[in-house]
Simulated scan of single mutants.
Amino acid sequence: MALAGLGWLPEDLAREAGVPLEALQRFDRGEILPHGVYAALRDALHGAGVIFEDDGQMVEGGPGVRLRRAQADEGTRPEELSSANDG
């Protein structure tokens, strides 16, 4: 679900996490991996804006993931306006 929300392929996650694609494929099959692989995957997803929720945290129905809200674009501040950036 996290990959779909980010628009990532497994190759993207493997690259961002710095782990071999084969390790990610083993993870998907439920195989036991070194702790560092789990941490790298978690950190890469968290860095991209994925929030991991525990059971009942935001909605009922069990653990899951969601994406962090995007920061609103505040635009150009008045003191930064000039004829060069007047659009």
Rank of each mutant, 00 (worst) to 15 (best):
A48E: 00
A2N: 03
H46L: 01
R15D: 14
G62H: 06
D55K: 06
L3S: 02
A70Q: 11
Q57K: 08
R26D: 10
R69A: 07
S82C: 08
R66N: 00
L33A: 09
E31Y: 11
V37P: 00
G56V: 03
L3K: 03
Q25V: 06
G5S: 00
P10F: 08
G56Q: 14
G64A: 06
L45I: 02
G47E: 02
D54L: 13
A70N: 05
G18Y: 12
A40M: 10
D54E: 11
E74T: 08
A72M: 10
G36A: 11
L3A: 01
L9I: 04
D54M: 07
P63Y: 09
L33C: 08
F52A: 06
F27V: 04
P20R: 15
T76A: 12
L67D: 00
A23S: 15
R29L: 13
R26W: 06
G64N: 02
W8C: 00
Q71C: 00
R77K: 14
Q25C: 04
P20V: 06
A72F: 04
R69S: 05
R66W: 01
P10A: 04
E79K: 08
L24C: 09
E74I: 02
I32P: 03
R69W: 00
D43Q: 12
L3Y: 06
P78M: 13
G87K: 03
S82G: 11
D12W: 01
L45R: 04
I51C: 08
G56F: 13
S83D: 09
P63D: 03
E60L: 10
Q71Y: 00
L45T: 03
A84I: 11
I51K: 08
G62E: 08
E53M: 05
